[in-house]
Amino acid sequence: MTITWNQTFTWIDGTFYDRDIIYISVQNNINTSTSMGKFFFTIMSAFAEMEAELIRERVLSCLDAAKAK
């Protein structure tokens, strides 16, 4: 079973919420206690998952090409 970044984020978000933990990044202006902060964190997790999937696809494509030679 493959665990995606989105599943990991959902678990982290739920754990933070259950324990009243707020993530604040002063440098990036992210604050998960606000709706915009939660939105931004969610969007970033989606981009991270997409990037990981693209890397996986490229690696598998290269492996297939190497096997074909």
Rank of each mutant, 00 (worst) to 15 (best):
M1Q: 04
M1D: 05
M1K: 04
T2A: 12
T2I: 09
I3L: 05
T4V: 07
T4C: 11
W5E: 14
W5S: 08
N6H: 12
N6E: 15
N6G: 07
Q7E: 15
Q7M: 02
Q7I: 01
Q7L: 01
T8I: 14
T8S: 11
T8N: 09
F9L: 07
F9R: 10
F9I: 08
F9D: 04
F9C: 06
T10I: 06
T10L: 09
T10N: 13
W11E: 11
W11Q: 09
W11L: 12
W11N: 08
I12D: 07
I12L: 13
I12R: 06
I12V: 14
I12M: 12
D13V: 02
D13P: 00
D13E: 12
D13M: 04
G14T: 02
G14H: 03
T15K: 06
T15W: 05
F16K: 09
F16V: 01
Y17I: 05
Y17T: 12
D18Q: 15
D18F: 01
D18R: 13
R19W: 01
R19Q: 10
R19P: 00
R19V: 00
D20I: 01
D20R: 11
I21S: 03
I21K: 06
I21M: 03
I22P: 01
I22N: 11
I24L: 10
I24V: 14
V26S: 10
N28L: 15
I30R: 06
I30H: 05
N31T: 05
T34E: 07
T34I: 05
S35M: 07
G37S: 03
G37V: 02
K38Y: 01
K38N: 01
F39V: 04
F39M: 12
F40I: 15
F41A: 15
F41K: 12
T42N: 11
I43H: 09
I43Q: 09
I43W: 06
S45Y: 05
S45E: 10
S45D: 09
F47V: 05
F47L: 12
F47G: 07
F47I: 06
A48V: 04
E49H: 10
E49P: 00
E49K: 04
M50Y: 01
M50I: 00
E51L: 07
E51Q: 09
A52S: 06
E53Q: 09
E53H: 03
L54W: 03
L54R: 13
L54E: 13
L54F: 04
I55P: 00
I55C: 02
R56Q: 03
R56I: 00
R56D: 02
R56Y: 02
E57Q: 14
R58Y: 07
R58W: 06
R58N: 13
V59C: 01
V59H: 03
L60D: 10
L60E: 15
S61W: 01
S61Q: 06
S61A: 04
C62H: 13
C62W: 10
C62D: 11
A66T: 11
A66P: 02
K67W: 05
K67I: 13
A68D: 08
A68N: 10
K69C: 08
K69T: 10
K69A: 11
